[in-house]
Design a protein around this nucleic acid. Structure first.
Lengths: 166, 166
DNA sequence: TTCAACTTTCAAAAGGTTTTGAAAGTTCGG
DNA sequence: CCGAACTTTCAAAACCTTTTGAAAGTTGAA
């Protein structure tokens, strides 16, 4: 396969994956492009390669910087800003886990805690408490596991995963 | 807190969570409603409670059945169909993992395998192969781990998670 | 201070997804 | 068979998210 074709395929696939992961299509494509380019790219170059508007490029680059997946890089003597991606996959995964945990898991845990306070005592309320308690257990387990993952290093992670798959 | 209020909050929260998880808002709300109701509900009752149209209810109930998260239940002497949710949380999680793995992880692994075939040998191609190889490693590890999870039972899962969080 | 180079903003347009509801389809008891 | 009770379908409408691009804002060298 040609390098060019492979690169395009990767950018498309990463975009599709991203959109299933709370990262919008373009944001993921910008990330993919930076991941596979050996040099830092300017906004102009990103716009050109992905055929997106200036505003769109700017917005998504900013978002990637917020997530900690992309860094600004200034070249001496150049006015323009250049961008590089975090290339350590384990770091990429950690950064994504951090964001998703904050945006998804933490809010639902807050709601589950709130609504555990139902104190009627008929059969229906009983059933409700039972379901909520069960969900809460899983949510909290997931929360501590992810918290642990985020704080751990890659070797620990790979090790644990290898154990898990025997 | 009142049972009614708590139930509404749960349905809303589950809907929001679902939409981050490849399950559309209404589909997740139908699932939430069935999760917390002690009796099987008819399409009519679901439409009424969630204030959604007949078509919408039908579509999302079908989708939940496809995912294995909801079952049809026929009451003797009744023409209508009734629905119950899978209430075992561990099963719910397994079913979701199965669907998402199929729709997200497997396609990207296919692409990664394809594009590993780049055989140019300049610096740029080298960088490309390096990034792809690294991502592929993680993707495959995630795939086997999830495969293991799906095949395992709840105790194994809870045990492993407890180990992971020390 | 000025100006050109660059970045950011944001309202409007485009594009995508979900919902509606009426019509068509199915099923079963009589 | 028939008709009532129910389910499914699908085109159009509503809604939501993303993208555009022009204008406003910022920055730094001279």
């Amino acid at each position: 396969m040609e390098l060019q074709e492979a690169q395009d395929k990767f950018i498309q696939a990463w975009g599709t994956l991203g959109s299933h992961w709370g990262i919008n299509r373009t944001m993921a494509q910008v990330h993919a492009l930076l991941l596979i380019s050996e040099n830092p790219l300017s906004a102009e170059e990103i716009m050109g390669t992905l055929k997106i508007s200036r505003g769109n490029a700017n917005m998504n680059i900013r978002a990637l910087i917020d997530w900690g997946l992309v860094f600004k890089e200034l070249k001496p003597g150049e006015r323009k800003e250049f961008f590089v991606a975090e290339k350590e996959m384990w770091e990429v995964i950690r950064k994504i886990i951090i964001q998703r945990k904050k945006k998804e898991l933490e809010p639902i845990i807050r709601v589950l805690n709130d609504i555990s306070e139902v104190n009627e005592d008929d059969k229906e309320a009983e059933e409700f408490r039972k379901v909520i308690k069960d969900i809460r257990l899983f949510a909290q387990k997931a929360d501590s596991t992810l918290e642990g993952l985020v704080k751990s290093d890659q070797n620990w992670f790979v090790g644990t995963f290898l154990n898990m798959i025997k």
